[in-house]
Design a binder for these strands. Sequence first.
DNA 1: ACTGGCACTCGCTACAGTCGAGTGCCAGGA
DNA 2: TCCTGGCACTCGACTGTAGCGAGTGCCAGT
Lengths: 340, 340
Amino acid sequence: MGLDDRKLAVLRAIVEDYVSTQEPVGSKALVERHQLGVSPATVRNDMAVLEEEGYIRQPHTSAGRVPTDRGYRLFVDRLSRVKPLSPAERRAIERFLVGAVDLDDVVHRTVRLLAQLTRQVAVVQYPSLARSSVRHLELVPISTTRLMLVMIADTGRVEQRLVELPGPVPADDVTDLRRLINEKLANARLSETPPLVQALVEEAPTGLRPTMTTLATVLLETLVERHEERIALAGTANLTRGGLLDFQGSLRPILEALEEEVVLLKLIGETEPSTTRVLIGDENEFDNLRAASVVSTGYGPGTTIVGGLGVLGPTRMDYPGNIATVRAVARYVGELLAQN
Amino acid sequence: MGLDDRKLAVLRAIVEDYVSTQEPVGSKALVERHQLGVSPATVRNDMAVLEEEGYIRQPHTSAGRVPTDRGYRLFVDRLSRVKPLSPAERRAIERFLVGAVDLDDVVHRTVRLLAQLTRQVAVVQYPSLARSSVRHLELVPISTTRLMLVMIADTGRVEQRLVELPGPVPADDVTDLRRLINEKLANARLSETPPLVQALVEEAPTGLRPTMTTLATVLLETLVERHEERIALAGTANLTRGGLLDFQGSLRPILEALEEEVVLLKLIGETEPSTTRVLIGDENEFDNLRAASVVSTGYGPGTTIVGGLGVLGPTRMDYPGNIATVRAVARYVGELLAQN
DNA sequence: ACTGGCACTCGCTACAGTCGAGTGCCAGGA
DNA sequence: TCCTGGCACTCGACTGTAGCGAGTGCCAGT
């Protein structure tokens, strides 16, 4: 089980070569391209050990070696340093994110930026409502029996719901309702609103009771309980790079998985600690994504986290580079959010 | 140049067979599967004529015939009747669209529904701001020097912009600004707002002048001039049906095109008359989409059109079926919008 | 412990041969 | 005049064979 330094160096070399050439790498090519200071035969012996331990494998008997998911895992954990971003990349990030007019714009720019920099599929979760606070709730009369309820979160996210009222409500009442609701809910974390909303209904003047009840129902059901998460996606065309070699020739399962918001949320949304997460191959829970890896992290203003973002690509991806980019972008987005 | 009835019948049969089998169709198979009442030899003669006229072609010398874009065009224009929807499909549409909580929800449900029914890529344009009227403009104070401007359109679409004010503005002033703006702009078509906004600035009391100017700028620049169009997409995984036969093996160009909102808007957004539009193969203006066809139509409450929706797939698609589905879905969505 | 040498494996490519679906053409018949 | 059966032909798809070469495992020697 001893993996001495040289064997690790061999594994690192295999990963790096395979990632860049996309072809199984043999012992001879390895010693030519890296300063290992030993002969191909020695490397072969090391390779045999690495294969026994499950870090690499041979596609066919007479071919070179390819890293396994386990090999990538070891590489990511112990053999790679996060690449510093080039100044050009830093500038690209700043240039790209400056001038966004609203949250939608920020998210769209971010996801395209990520896709472009990493040349992978990029995923950005909108700031989660569950982790947001209410900044303001607005009631806009649409007709006498209809209101539009607009919620503005501190993250800049805006959600609206059409509310069918039990009966006609005069303008003055709407003003009162608006005041009551905001007094009670403004600055409350959305996850802590249920008791507050309950109190709102109970404390409401009799005249406003039915309307308030309706509003409370909509508020709780569509904004709190079924906490509406949103996702932006970009760069699916990047899946076709590397011909049909990655994803063993069928994009089908990948594209299907990418259409499911639930799947994407699980992939990038569950970043508990503020660290970068790397899921390699079948480490993720979805069969459709066995051949894919995900690099993701949380983002948010300051040290809090309000959502996740990341990239998805073939297991054969540039982990150090992608990790660096994902982190950097998350940091910039966080700063941008903090400014608002 | 005479295309008698039988030749047209042969073309129709070729299109139908090729669409369902995805394989070049030969003269013998044709007479077996269709009641043409003539021998294969006769069919071959007809095929030769059809090929001369450019309606069909042979992938290789010793293969059957395949319709050309021109052949599909003739088929769509003269040889097919729009398939009536099955009751199951009608029910699916109703079931799918009931219970949408807001416009976002309507659009998302619609696009998924379309993708599912047609098994193609579905595209839905959000109700265009250019064709909407202002229902209400709300100003929400974020801090003393920041407002959030929320615009609610009659189509249910809600847009918000963060506005950096030139100086602190007291709450009473915000109330005044809100009143002034709504008095002037409520119910105005967005395309007709520029002179109204201009007037707003000119008529504003001196104290509110600078703030009003800032608001006017944001309003015009981000909501009117650069009229923000939005698009929802679903069913990209359907592109992989039919293996790699459609799109000659490379999804790349298609996926790239689908990432460009501008492209999608041109494909489905320019539906001037209220009729269904079919773009076959290179009839569309994008090189990337040479191998694709688009079926699209406009939708909106009543007879007005506020946006477009449609499906995109291989030229080898079920035109009559897709046309019927696209129309039906557009009609249902229109009714749904009319209710709000 | 590393190295050079050697036999071996096996996927890839090229090539030849066969098969068969499909065609174009033509002469004969309604 | 139009349709039909017959026939020779084309050419892609598939199969089998052979040679090549990258890469390996093993072993004896340093």
